[in-house]
Amino acid sequence: MKKFLVLIVAIFLVFSLAACGSSNSTSTKADSNTGEKPSESAKSDFPKKPIKLIIPYGPGGATDVIFRLVAKEAEKHLGQPVVPVNMEGAGATLGARHVKDAKPDGYTILGSHDTIATSHLSGSSDFSFDAFEPISLLTKTINIPSTNSKSGIKTAAEFVEYVKANPGKAKISMIPGSTSHFFMAQFLAETGISTDEIRFVGYPGTGDEVAALYANEVDFSMLNIPSGKGFYEDGSLIPAGIAHNERLDLLPDTPTLIEQGINIENATNRGIFAPKGTPEEHIVIIEEAFKKALESDEVKNKINDELGSITSFIPHTEYKDFLDKQEAKLKEIAEGLDFKK
């Protein structure tokens, strides 16, 4: 009888162990499957809350106008609001630094342009494009040197003549270390104007530059259609030249700089960036939403026909190479120039 009981107990233990093994195996398999599902779910669940789009300039400038327009359309494809936040200051580096140092989760992104590199090259910041995860290029905006109608100067070539005849008197606006600063440096180099012949006046943002030119505080500013159109239409400001290889449809009577003997083509390239380390799946989701936004006829027409810009989408896989080439060009302009003057 004892032997029989021992045998029964032994059989029971064998089946118990087998059952445990099967349970563990099933549990492990289930855990494995469950482990995959949250990952897939995490991808599809992004974004779960609003995304902040930091614009490193004040309201009213081209950067502000364009990013707000595209973001409004992009949020339809994200299922969450894209909230534009103006964060101007420190030559547009304040907002950029805020995003650079933000949590890399895709919920804080930057809408900016070449100023990231120009600020670094001019010594205004200690970081450049490589401090971010590039998401995509969105637009290119043709730049337009402009004057106040009261000055009597109607073209860029006339401004050059004015400077030569009145050395040290002309005042040029710029945002320190930004695209307007580099444009003016390029303009002076191309026209043979010495920095001793003009006076640079710095402003925190494009809106401030427009206001200064309108108030006749300065004589020459780099604007564009988004920031200057209303003033061109009412005649208070004059587009003195188009920094492109052809005239703009919106300003058919304004000659290009090349037509005036000034060999400059210059555009501001606007795109979106995320903090370094942001998951690629989040970058792809944001990229796709902004791509679809640019495909909207309403957005595209407004950018191309009303804002004097060109829709020019480049995905994150190609955007880095574009930025590297752009920075190399800007570096050439920066060499030998004194940006402290």
Rank of each mutant, 00 (worst) to 15 (best):
A170Y: 00
K171S: 04
K171E: 02
I172H: 00
S173T: 07
S173E: 03
M174V: 07
M174P: 00
P176T: 13
P176R: 02
S178M: 05
T179E: 10
F182D: 00
F182H: 00
F182R: 00
F183M: 01
F183V: 00
M184E: 11
A185E: 03
F187V: 02
L188T: 04
L188P: 01
E190P: 03
G192Y: 08
G192Q: 08
I193L: 12
T195M: 07
D196S: 15
D196T: 14
E197V: 11
I198R: 07
R199H: 10
R199D: 11
V201K: 07
V201G: 07
G202N: 04
P204M: 00
P204Q: 02
P204S: 13
P204I: 01
P204Y: 00
G205L: 02
T206G: 13
D208K: 07
E209Y: 00
A211G: 08
L213A: 10
L213T: 06
L213V: 07
Y214I: 12
Y214H: 10
N216Y: 04
V218H: 00
D219G: 09
D219A: 11
D219C: 09
F220M: 04
F220I: 10
S221P: 05
L223K: 02
L223A: 12
N224C: 09
I225F: 05
S227I: 05
K229I: 13
K229F: 09
G230P: 04
F231C: 09
D234S: 13
D234H: 09
D234A: 12
D234R: 11
G235A: 09
G235T: 14
S236H: 13
S236Q: 13
L237G: 11
L237V: 12
I238L: 09
A240R: 03
A240E: 06
G241R: 01
G241M: 06
A243N: 05
H244E: 15
H244Y: 15
N245E: 15
N245R: 11
D249M: 10
L250Y: 06
L250S: 15
L250C: 08
L251A: 14
L251V: 12
P252C: 07
D253K: 12
T254F: 06
T254K: 05
P255V: 12
P255Y: 04
T256K: 06
L257W: 02
I258C: 08
E259T: 15
Q260S: 10
Q260H: 06
I262L: 04
I262N: 04
I262K: 06
N263C: 10
N266F: 09
N266R: 02
N266S: 11
N266V: 02
T268R: 10
T268E: 14
N269E: 12
N269K: 07
R270N: 15
F273G: 01
F273V: 02
P275S: 12
P275R: 08
K276G: 12
G277H: 06
